[in-house]
């Protein structure tokens, strides 16, 4: 790991100022992705601004029909949160399925969402639930947030403060995990929301995406059988040593069906 200057921010304004003063600064949350990348010298920031001592960034709070989760809330805290478990059990289950216990005790919602790994779990939940990303500058709809592989709508220096998840009528998440890392080879989040049914897929392609054909079928009848015969085209999907694009396309159908079953309570 190359040398860097370390700063501990005490407030969001303090973090923004410290980041702005750095030549090539980066925010540090759980470090589960960033420290690993720095050890490999894939990232070499001049400065790290640690967000973990900022109290207002951590925690879960209900807000009308939504649940607002602070950026530095760990995956384990999301999984254990009574509010999340009561109002969006599929989101708690998703958090419980990330990596392993040690990764969940350190890794954070904000770090995962800002990083937008194409195989990360949370992006599927944000897109399917119609979540809103709250930064220190503005509100961004999930549909506009994930712009490409490891790319988001965040501007340089913009700090993700929280994500607001509207509670759905029902929802389910199913993933086929990479047996080593537990990242999604294909993960599908299905949600029946006030705005209709949404099906969001992660892991299978270069970024999270929705499947309109499946959404329309589930809109007519919210049941696993409605998805029979529906698949996605392999041409836009990723193929690697773990799974070919064709296999991932097949898995999307299987995971979507399982997610609907989970949403229906089975």
């Amino acid at each position: 790991m190359y040398e860097f200057q370390y700063h501990r921010a005490t407030s969001v304004a303090d973090a923004a100022a410290k980041l702005a003063a750095a030549t090539d600064g980066k925010l540090l949350a759980g470090g589960q992705t960033l420290i690993a990348a720095m050890k490999l010298r894939l990232a070499a920031p001049s400065d790290l601004v640690d967000l973990r001592a900022i109290p207002e960034l951590r925690g879960v709070c209900p807000d009308g029909d939504a649940v607002v989760i602070g950026a530095t809330t760990t995956h384990a805290e999301v999984a254990a949160s009574p509010e999340v478990r009561a109002r969006i059990p599929a989101l708690a289950a998703l958090a419980e399925g990330i990596g392993d216990p040690m990764v969940r005790n350190a890794g954070t919602l904000g770090g995962s969402v800002a990083n937008n790994d194409p195989a990360a779990d949370y992006p599927a939940a944000l897109l399917a639930l119609g979540a809103t990303v709250i930064t220190h500058k503005r509100h961004i709809a999930a549909a506009d947030f994930f712009t490409g592989m490891y790319e988001t709508a965040l501007e340089p220096g913009e700090i993700l403060m929280a994500v607001s998840f509207p509670a759905p009528k029902r929802a389910g998440y199913a993933k086929f995990p990479n047996p080593a890392s537990r990242y999604a080879i294909a993960g599908v989040f299905v949600a029946e929301t006030a705005a209709g049914v949404r099906v969001a897929v992660t892991g299978a392609g270069p970024g999270v995406f929705r499947v309109p054909a499946m959404e329309q079928a589930l809109e007519k009848r919210f049941a696993p059988e409605s998805l029979a015969g529906l698949t996605v085209s392999a041409s836009d999907l990723s193929g690697d040593m773990h799974a070919s694009a064709e296999y991932r396309a097949h898995l999307v159908g299987v995971m979507a069906t399982r997610a609907v079953r989970v949403a229906l309570g089975g």
Partner: peptide, 17 residues
């Protein structure tokens, strides 16, 4: 770290302040 299991190879010591 504060009672929860973490991987010490993937955290900075300063994160344990």
């Amino acid at each position: 770290l504060d009672g929860r299991a973490v991987k010490a190879c993937n955290l900075l010591a300063l994160q344990a302040e």
